[in-house]
C-alpha cells in the first residue's frame, strides 16, 4: 500500500491516513510512505474491509510525540510514527520504555523538532517596516530545519500581540494582525530588510562580550553557524574572536595607573 502525503507538518494529513490504515488492519511493513513532490500522484482507495473491534484510542503522550515528529524533515518520520501507533495497539505501555529502539528514535526526532521550535523563538529577528495606522509592523526571515513555523507562531502571537508581524521562511509563513494568526506552507522568498536599531544591538553584543573568557566552541554548539546569516550581530563574531587576545594584552598593560580621577579625590576629601 502506498500513501502519498504533502508532508509539510500537517498532522491531520498523516493522522487521517494512519487511521484508515489501522482500521483496515494494514501492518506497517506493508505500507510505503511517499512525499508528493508536486507530481500528480494520488493515494489509491484502500481495499479490504475494516477490521471490527479495533479501538482507536492512543495515550495522550503519543499525540504530543506524533505531532512533533510529523514536523521533522526526515522522510522516515511517517513510517516510524505509524509503526509506533501499530505497536501501541498491543503494547499499551510502549512509550514508557524509552530504551525501545523505535521509541528512542522517535524521541530523537521529537527532540530535534523541539530544539528547532526553541531556536526559532530565540533567533527570529524582527525588522520594522513602515506602515500607516496606529499599529507598528515588523517582518522577519528565518530558516528552520523542520516544518515548525505554524506550530511555533502562537508563541509570537502571545508575546508580540500589540504589533503586526510576518515571519517568512522557506518552509511556510505566518502573519499576525491583531485579529487573526494566518499561516501557509508555501516556501517564501527572502525579503530585503534593514533596521537601524540593529546597529545598537550590535554595539551591545560587541561590548557585553568578555575577551578574557573566549569559549568559541560553547558559543557554536548553542548558536550553530547555520543561523548566523540571518543574525545581525553574527557578522561581528570573527572580528571579536580575532581581536580578543590583543584586547586582553592591552588591558594587562593598562593595569594599575598611578593617578586617580579628580572626583575620587574629592570623595576621599569628604570622608
Amino acid at each position: 500500500m502506498r500513501i502519498v502525503l504533502k508532508g509539510r507538518g500537517d498532522f491531520e494529513e498523516w493522522r487521517d491516513a494512519a487511521r484508515d490504515l489501522l482500521r483496515h488492519g494494514i501492518a506497517p511493513q506493508h505500507v510505503d510512505w511517499g512525499l508528493n513532490q508536486g507530481l500528480f500522484e494520488e493515494t489509491p482507495a484502500m481495499a479490504g474491509s475494516i477490521v471490527p473491534g479495533r479501538s482507536l484510542t492512543v495515550p495522550k503522550a503519543f499525540l504530543d510525540l506524533a505531532q512533533a515528529m510529523i514536523c521533522h524533515s526526515d522522510p522516515a518520520r511517517f513510517a516510524l510514527a505509524y509503526r509506533l501507533l501499530w505497536r501501541l495497539q498491543g503494547e499499551r505501555y510502549l512509550l514508557e520504555v524509552p530504551t525501545d529502539p523505535d521509541v528512542a528514535r522517535a524521541r530523537r526526532m521529537e527532540k530535534s523538532v523541539r530544539r528547532d521550535d526553541h531556536k526559532m523563538t530565540a533567533f527570529v529577528r524582527f525588522k520594522e517596516v513602515v506602515q500607516d495606522g496606529p499599529r507598528r509592523a515588523f517582518v522577519a526571515w528565518f530558516e528552520p530545519d523542520h516544518h515548525i513555523v505554524a506550530r511555533t507562531a502562537p508563541f509570537f502571537q502571545r508575546r508580540f500581540t500589540d504589533m503586526d508581524w510576518v515571519i517568512a521562511t522557506p518552509m511556510g509563513s505566518c502573519a499576525w494582525d491583531g485579529e487573526a494568526l494566518t499561516c501557509d506552507d508555501e516556501p517564501a522568498a527572502k525579503p530585503d530588510l534593514s533596521d537601524e536599531t540593529d546597529e545598537l544591538w550590535r554595539t551591545y553584543f560587541a561590548n557585553i562580550f568578555n575577551p578574557a573568557r573566549l569559549k568559541v566552541k560553547m558559543m557554536q554548539t548553542e548558536m550553530p553557524k547555520k543561523y548566523w546569516k540571518n543574525l545581525p550581530e553574527a557578522e561581528l563574531i570573527p572580528g571579536l574572536i580575532g581581536g580578543a587576545e590583543q584586547r586582553v594584552r592591552d588591558m594587562a598593560d593598562r593595569m594599575a595607573s598611578e593617578t586617580v580621577p579628580r572626583f575620587h579625590e574629592r570623595l576621599q576629601a569628604r570622608t
Partner: peptide, 27 residues
Amino acid sequence: RDSTKGGIGSTEGSGICHAYAPDGRCI
C-alpha cells in the same frame, strides 16, 4: 504571563537565550 490581554511581552517558564557571545555566555 503573556500579552493577549494587552501590553507587550511574555514569559513562559523556561528562559530563552537570544544570542551567544564568543565567550560562550548566553545573552
